[in-house]
Design a protein around this nucleic acid. Structure first.
Length: 271
DNA sequence: AGGCCCTCCTGTAAGC
DNA sequence: TGCTTACAGGAGGGCC
């Protein structure tokens, strides 16, 4: 489910309810997520004060005065703010109860998500330490993608999904950005010209920025913490648009398996 | 080192 | 209607 815009939307929805608040307790209803949720966080975080929340790649970090929590939504995770006594729903696995009786709940049907202890230095956690740059970082060099893709033989779509190269991009926005930049998903990354790479990074930024503005993309089950869907779905130009007319030339959008996952593109407008 | 494939899990939709 | 199969927004790990 969640790519960078959906995680950012989630962050913006939950942060105001958490920052500056005190944790009463942590409840773990099912520790069997992608990795076992460490039971020790119950003791570590009881009575802690939440200092800040932020996003790194597709991870949400909750920083407290007693250490940090790292949350990943996997494919189907949702976070929402509710009250402690609200009835638990199917697939509610984890919650942070605040002293004001409000509560952050994680619902994740597929359980590919994760809740991990980040200690005093979450960015040096094994899962975060080797991550590539943020696509929306102001100091990201405009030729970064060009330099990072030299001699790469993988297709550019899969290269964009590689969080060691660049973070936050999933299959939806990879396909959308490639369409916008006029590059076929199957092109070998190393064959892209410098101009094409500049164009692609620009397209990535534009697509992600527009998607954040729309509150993310709801294909099926993504909800912002307020319960609203993300409205970027209506702006998608190729993802899931097999056989619908290309907005530039009218030819039908093609879908093709690329390394196990579908890619969508216009054979006329993308080279 | 880089790249490819498999895997975890549930829900949904399509096909028969 | 009901069973079976394929596929889904992620990404680490194992293997070549």
């Amino acid at each position: 489910m969640p790519e960078l815009p959906e995680v950012e939307t989630t962050l913006r929805g939950i942060a105001p309810h958490l920052e500056g608040k005190n944790i009463k307790c942590i409840n773990i209803y099912n520790k069997n997520l992608r990795w076992p949720v460490p039971m020790a966080i119950k003791k570590k975080l009881a009575g802690a004060k939440i200092k800040s929340c932020y996003r790194r790649a597709k991870y949400l970090i909750i920083v407290t005065d007693k250490g940090s929590l790292i949350i990943h939504l996997g494919m189907s995770g949702n976070l929402h703010i509710t009250t402690q006594k609200a009835t638990r729903q199917k697939h509610d696995h984890f919650e942070i109860v605040l002293t004001n009786k409000k509560c952050l709940r994680l619902n994740d049907p597929r359980r590919f998500g994760a809740v991990l202890w980040g200690g005093t230095s979450p960015e040096s956690h094994k899962l975060l330490v080797d991550l590539g740059p943020e696509p929306l970082a102001k100091d990201l060099a405009e030729d970064y993608l060009y330099l990072a893709t030299r001699k790469r033989k993988r297709n550019i779509r899969d290269t964009l999904l590689d969080s060691k190269i660049i973070v936050g991009i999933g299959n939806i926005y990879a396909n959308e950005a490639l369409f916008k930049a006029g590059i076929r998903p199957g092109r070998r990354a190393g064959t892209l010209s410098k101009a094409a790479c500049l164009q692609l990074l620009k397209a990535i930024k534009e697509v992600l920025t527009a998607a954040i503005k729309a509150g993310g993309t709801t294909l099926k089950d993504f909800q912002s913490p307020s319960g609203k869907p993300g409205y970027f779905k209506q702006s998608l130009l190729v993802y899931g648009k097999e056989q619908t007319p290309c907005i530039h030339c009218g030819r039908p959008i093609q879908a093709k398996k690329l390394g196990g996952r579908r890619a969508f593109f216009c054979t006329n407008c993308q080279l």
